[in-house]
Nucleic acid binder design. Sequence first.
DNA 1: ACGCCTTGTCAGGCTCCCTGATCAAGCGAC
DNA 2: GTCGCTTGATCAGGGAGCCTGACAAGGCGT
Lengths: 167, 167
Amino acid sequence: MPSDPKTPLNLVPLPGLMEVASEALFIEFRAELVEAGYGDVRPTHGCVFRFVHENGMRLTELAQVAGMTKQSIGEIVDDLESRGYVERIPDPADKRAKLIRLTEKGEQAQRVGFGLFTTIEQRWAERYGADRIAELRETLEEIAAVEAPQLVPELSQAAREPEPATP
Amino acid sequence: MPSDPKTPLNLVPLPGLMEVASEALFIEFRAELVEAGYGDVRPTHGCVFRFVHENGMRLTELAQVAGMTKQSIGEIVDDLESRGYVERIPDPADKRAKLIRLTEKGEQAQRVGFGLFTTIEQRWAERYGADRIAELRETLEEIAAVEAPQLVPELSQAAREPEPATP
DNA sequence: ACGCCTTGTCAGGCTCCCTGATCAAGCGAC
DNA sequence: GTCGCTTGATCAGGGAGCCTGACAAGGCGT
């Protein structure tokens, strides 16, 4: 049945639409991150920037909140460390453990990243109508509250600070 | 800064919300597909079920519309072939080429899959309010039309037939 | 002081996608 | 006709991201 090269949008399944919008959002984010000079921060690294605690955090804890294995997070942290975004310092409370903490550079990147989210949402509000986007957010929040009550609690907050400041 | 284990939803960035909703939708789809007896159809296989033409389609063409390389699609088709969902028949118009076509089993799976999309959308309409979901779809369609004019044209249509029929 | 749990890491594997190279078949120019 | 060039499919290899299993070093309860 898929034959007509121009499938009308109202026949595209909801997951498809969702994915298109989601990906568009992501691509916009990615492009601006590159433009801001953080092109070496890959999508995978997000799980660290989102969840890492200001005062440092153990690998195991990071793995838990990110919903990944210690090994996977460890690999990502290795990568971020080699790029200078995070550092491992010995945990004074436990000689086995190390605390993973953002470096100065890492914190700047985090600020810029969080700032980009609000920037983009504002831009979409201008592009598609503020009420439409507000509506969209409202609906998605309701959905998220129902569908992922255990999944969402860890997700980061964005934009506590007013402006990202230039990198 | 990410410290409070309970981040209020209104502080979650739009992409995060989008992804949660998108994934919830996907998981629901996946679960029902398994339940319908098509558990061996993996997400990757979607690019074939979505795009394959009723009368058969060449690998190269499939790769083009799916936006992937011939090799990647080829691998997926190999897999689907070994599972009995598609078959390769010689192309009468070109002795080099083969036509990839759904088998009977493959067509049933496609029907069921397409049907599930509408089923789930209806269920969400009941769960979150028909107008809310209609609104959501409307907004997403508008976004998709702007953000992915070259990306969307290939996306499949769903639900041409009224009911998926029991597998 | 003795096992037992925890923390982090090494080793290896799987999936899904990619690039590069190859081979057979068709097609156009002469 | 036949000599290249293009095209359809495939083989080989690689990288990103995630996983499970195994294990050494350190801490902790009794």
